[in-house]
Computed example of a mutant assay.
Amino acid sequence: MAIDRATAALLGGALGDALGMPTQLLTPEEIDRTYGFVDRFVAPSDDHPVSRGLPAGAITDDTEQTLLLGRVLLESGAVFDHRRWVDALVSWEREVKARGSYDLLGPSTKRALDAINAGASPEDAGRGGDTNGAAMRIAPVGIVMPFEPLEALVAKVAETCSATHNTPIAIATASAVAAAVSCGVAGGNWREAVDCAEHAALRGANLGDGSARADVARLIRDARDLVRGRPEAEAIPLIVERIGTGVAAAESVPAAFAVLELAAGDPWRAAVVGANLGGDTDTIGAIAAGMAGACAGMASLPAGRIAELKGLDVEAVRLLAAELVAARFDRPDGRVAA
């Protein structure tokens, strides 16, 4: 079961990412005018600011960085290898630039990598990173780390955030997502996963550089309360207006939990809702559908849609999921084996 759910977490995230790829940065009105209601993979418009030229179903940096982090976790051993992670990100950035897609990098990651390339240490580069890049790629930490002990899971999240998102809000939001995935991999349902997320967010808010802190657990609760029992047509504008869908972690991560609530834990529905929100649709959809996938397993994912994904080796994802689960159970304290 754990491997099945871990695979669903990664592939669910990819579905949400690809479905939201053509709608990112647009308003809900622009999405409707350009594509109609998005419930299938569509190619971005020719004048899209960042996605133009990509085929329908293409994944973006959300999925690519998630898989990259998973590999580095496995290669690091018991202690997360910051230098290996930074080198992997810099190499990945170089490849992204060569593909002409540098604008797909998130602002905190882009700023941190530019600082590292200019000579800053990884420890200093992540200061000020308060966007959702850490949360969007954190699923492998949730797969490899059990929820208990909670301190160990959140510490591993904070380690992976250090170089690009070393702030309380980024660590708290990433901890919430990782905890939800971890709970799902262990067999929990999506409601149990959200409870785990709130506990992890409280602990993660005490870590990182800077004094600006947010009660992410409360933001998650408020977001879920906002949409509970409402139809999608009513809930979507409420998410946009009252929570926000921008790249700030304090907006997009609570929005993803609202989407999870609205979709009642269904991964594809979470991807669909995320794609029609406007703003950072690919990241919100990836986070929400990834958490849902971890809690529902592969049977909940549409196999036909997975087959339509572009730029993703599905068998490699399955293998990565299996390796991460093996590492999860390799040590009694949940650390990755060397």
Rank of each mutant, 00 (worst) to 15 (best):
V240K: 03
V240S: 04
V240F: 10
R242F: 15
G244E: 09
G246L: 08
G246K: 13
G246Q: 11
G246P: 08
V247A: 15
V247I: 15
A248D: 12
A250T: 15
A250I: 15
A250N: 07
E251F: 07
S252I: 07
S252E: 08
S252V: 09
P254Q: 08
A255H: 00
F257T: 04
F257E: 00
A258S: 10
A258N: 03
V259E: 05
L260I: 11
E261I: 05
E261R: 04
E261Y: 10
L262I: 10
A263T: 11
A263F: 08
A264E: 15
G265K: 03
D266W: 09
W268N: 03
W268H: 12
R269F: 02
R269H: 12
A270G: 12
A270I: 06
A270N: 09
A271F: 10
A271Y: 05
A275T: 07
A275Q: 06
N276D: 11
N276V: 04
N276G: 06
L277N: 01
G278R: 02
G279C: 11
G279F: 01
G279E: 02
T281S: 15
D282M: 14
D282K: 14
D282E: 14
T283M: 11
I284D: 00
I284R: 03
G285V: 07
A286R: 05
I287E: 01
A289W: 01
G290V: 07
G290M: 01
G290T: 09
A292I: 11
A292N: 04
G293Q: 01
A294N: 02
C295G: 07
C295F: 08
A296N: 04
G297P: 05
G297M: 07
G297I: 05
G297H: 02
